[in-house]
Design a protein around this nucleic acid. Sequence first.
DNA 1: AATGAAGGCAACCGCAGAAGG
DNA 2: GCCTTCTGCGGTTGCCTTCAT
Length: 308
Amino acid sequence: MGRSPCCDESGSLKKGPWTTEEDEKLLQFIQRNGHGSWRNLPRLAGLNRCGKSCRLRWTNYLRPDIKRGKFSQDEEQTILHLHSILGNKWSAIATHLPGRTDNEIKNFWNTHLKKRLIQMGFDPMTHRPRTDFFDALPQLVALAALRGQLPSATAQLQGAGADVAPFLQAAKLQYLQCLLQSAATTIVSASAGSSAVVSASDVEAALGAAACSPQGTTVAGAATAAASPSTADDHQVSCTFSGPPITGSEDLLLGCGAAGDLENYFHGDSLPPLADLSDAADGRCSASSPLPWPEFFPDDDPFITDFL
DNA sequence: AATGAAGGCAACCGCAGAAGG
DNA sequence: GCCTTCTGCGGTTGCCTTCAT
């Protein structure tokens, strides 16, 4: 459907950062007249900008009710929770965070929260533990076997007067490479995951729970972040899961232990434990060991803590 | 002190859907 | 029902600041 550009394409309209003078003009005009038609606003306000640019500047920066400054922990948790339900519906998420704009939330997600989830071993789109560690199990077993031979090998090398450190480093790098390859394979296969349909009422219920309890209350049947609403009028939301729908998915992320542990996950000095999916079937993580292969690598093993 | 890399954020771009003629 | 216009949204880009070397 052809649509004429909202802005002058001749290049005569100004782009880029706004000056305080422009801000002042826009602010005063809207305070006096309201924004009305964004298309006509720049001309009426005496601004050499396109209406779209004016709207963006107003909604993301000049609006008087905008809250500035760092996101609080409550806000972070609300974003995480809502994102696990709504996915990248930034405007919808923003409606639950008064004073925050969708753009601000989106930026915060992309620069902070997403990275943290990845670091923690969670898929930022599904909010579920990444399963690629299980795909890497053969490599881990091989590595464990290799490791069993390490003492004698290092003794031999040391006996020959060699420096062992470079060899150990090379072995670790090779192991990491195996993991990365495995992860890439998993992501590709997961993208062709099964589909499920969740009613809008489920999502609304989940939203209600989110609003009441941003600390990560279990939400049965909530759609994962891969949710992609098909149509608005049929009140059905088609969601893609990377695995079978699970109950209490939030618990996998937020509830490995008490909900309050989240703070430790995000603000502690070390990365949080990866969930043990063998225990996750009942929606809970293993408390016995943070690693799914404790028999190979004890928690305090420097060999593995090097990676963490 | 200089320089390059990384992080953070504001703004732009293009698309989709709603609204109106 | 079709076409055009307008608005809003999400993804992406590019600039500025901070940090590391």
